[in-house]
Amino acid sequence: MSSRIPGRPAGAWKGHAFVALCGAAAAIIVAMLAVILFDVVRSGWAGLGWQFLVSAPSEGMRGGGVGPAIFGTFALVLLMTIAVVPLGVLTAVYLFEYARPDSGFARAVNLAVSNLAGVPSIVFGLFGLGFFVRFVGGGIDRVFHGGELAWGKPSILWAALTLALLTLPVVIVTTGEALRAVPVAAREASFALGATKWQTISRVVLPQSLAGILTGAILAVSRGAGEVAPIMFTGAAYFLPKLPSRLTDQFMELGYHVYVLSTQSPDIEATKPILYSTVLVLLFLTFLLNATAIAIRARFRAALRPQDA
């Protein structure tokens, strides 16, 4: 390309061609999403039904439904949420309400959070196995159970805690965004009335950022519900005859079930209808969660915008 800016008539076709190229790229991306959704919905829709959602797999995964996997997924993300939301919200409160942004510690925390978000999910799986299952669980067994195996094996608790660490950055970032959206004037009014920092945060700032915290929790759940690599070795099971009832039980999970059905089936053609329906359930679940989070976030952003100016 020459450095001279070409005259309008000579350059016009290049401009059109470039915009068309950009448009084609965007169109390809949109088309890919459409093809994936169309394929999954078309092949998975027929198998869906109340029976599919509640019954257990049968006939060597060629029949039945995904009831236990749905139950396991919900139990897993519930435990994960209980662990990740308090930790994430408190960390965000530290970063946005307590720390001076230029302090070394705050910078280190910020850097740790953004790097945590980039750690591969399979490394979280290794960590969950090495730390939670072997070190913490094995330690509990040695100290309290005389070495008998109770906690030192994969279970829903360890899988949920592993996922909690994986989704921690999501909660911190989203909560931080919500805290920042609370007008400074609201804090100043509270301080001017004599309230302390903790009183201001707990009764003024956090209640106003509730929608943002909720968004973070939902996004974390949506992320956690779709992750398979971290739970493969920390608690998910191929098939279980009964539902998990204790923290030390293993569990079935939708994402892991998709992996098992698509790679371990002896007869993929016979498994296909069930597989597609399972994928459709998983996709529907994650999209529903994402859409809810986006809708809530849009509302609280719109509610707070006029005050920023």
């Binding site: 994936i36 779709g226 398979v228 992996y259 698509s262 790679t263 296909k272 994928v279 994650t286």
Partner: peptide
């Protein structure tokens, strides 16, 4: 945003099948 929300196991499934 929707693409980012697709679990990787679903993309793996799509690539495989």
């Amino acid at each position: 945003e929707l693409l980012a929300g697709i679990p990787s196991v679903v993309l793996g499934f799509f690539a495989l099948m």
